[in-house]
Simulated assay, not measured.
Amino acid sequence: MLNRTSFTAASVLAAMTLAACTSAPHATTPATPSSVSLQSHEWQLHKALNAQGTVDPQWQLPGRPQGPAPTVGLRFVDAQTVSVENLCNRMHGRYTLNGTNIQVERLASTLMACPNANLMALERKVGQWLPQARTWRIVGNPNAPVLELQFDNGARWQLTGSPT
């Protein structure tokens, strides 16, 4: 009888240990949950890197030495429309996803004059570059996600997300 009781106790202990092991990774894994998506956040350009991985100064506005212009924003309105926000004009276009691949079509834009020539030049560059994006991924923790877009030439944009 003592052996049967010991065996039962050991079995219960083993089952509890296995249950604890199967639930632990969910609590500690920094995986991005499905609730973080392109559409669930507004994305602001935080850092632009060239193919060598160094900060690319062409995305910095004069007078803003702290980094790329924080005004370049992307919003993936739905499963096929992206808009560029916070520049002189509103730009939008269609995009498609295939796994980690992204294809952005040529962007349409309003044609308002902009009193800031540097901001207007930045806007033109964004309109030329965004259709060259090839891959995307969301990294970081769910409270501070980062969207990484990689371009044909190896350059990358890192955009921080805030919930919509």
Score class of each variant (00 low, 15 high):
residue 90 R to G: 05
residue 71 T to N: 15
residue 105 E to L: 14
residue 121 A to K: 09
residue 91 M to R: 04
residue 158 Q to S: 10
residue 16 M to K: 02
residue 113 A to Q: 10
residue 79 A to D: 11
residue 148 E to F: 04
residue 67 G to Y: 07
residue 99 G to K: 01
residue 66 Q to Y: 08
residue 22 T to R: 03
residue 92 H to Y: 13
residue 55 V to W: 00
residue 121 A to Q: 14
residue 117 A to L: 08
residue 107 L to D: 09
residue 156 R to C: 07
residue 30 P to T: 00
residue 28 T to Q: 12
residue 38 L to C: 06
residue 34 S to W: 02
residue 30 P to W: 08
residue 84 V to I: 12
residue 59 W to E: 12
residue 51 A to C: 06
residue 7 F to G: 00
residue 60 Q to G: 05
residue 24 A to D: 01
residue 116 N to C: 04
residue 37 S to V: 00
residue 155 A to V: 03
residue 97 L to V: 10
residue 1 M to I: 09
residue 164 T to P: 02
residue 143 N to W: 03
residue 13 L to W: 08
residue 111 L to Q: 10
residue 152 D to L: 10
residue 15 A to I: 10
residue 53 G to E: 06
residue 10 A to I: 08
residue 75 R to A: 13
residue 62 P to A: 11
residue 118 N to H: 12
residue 111 L to T: 03
residue 17 T to N: 05
residue 90 R to E: 06
residue 161 G to K: 04
residue 85 E to Y: 11
residue 132 Q to V: 05
residue 58 Q to L: 09
residue 121 A to T: 07
residue 96 T to A: 15
residue 22 T to A: 11
residue 127 G to I: 03
residue 27 A to F: 12
residue 63 G to S: 09
residue 140 G to D: 06
residue 129 W to R: 13
residue 35 S to P: 00
residue 79 A to I: 01
residue 103 Q to W: 03
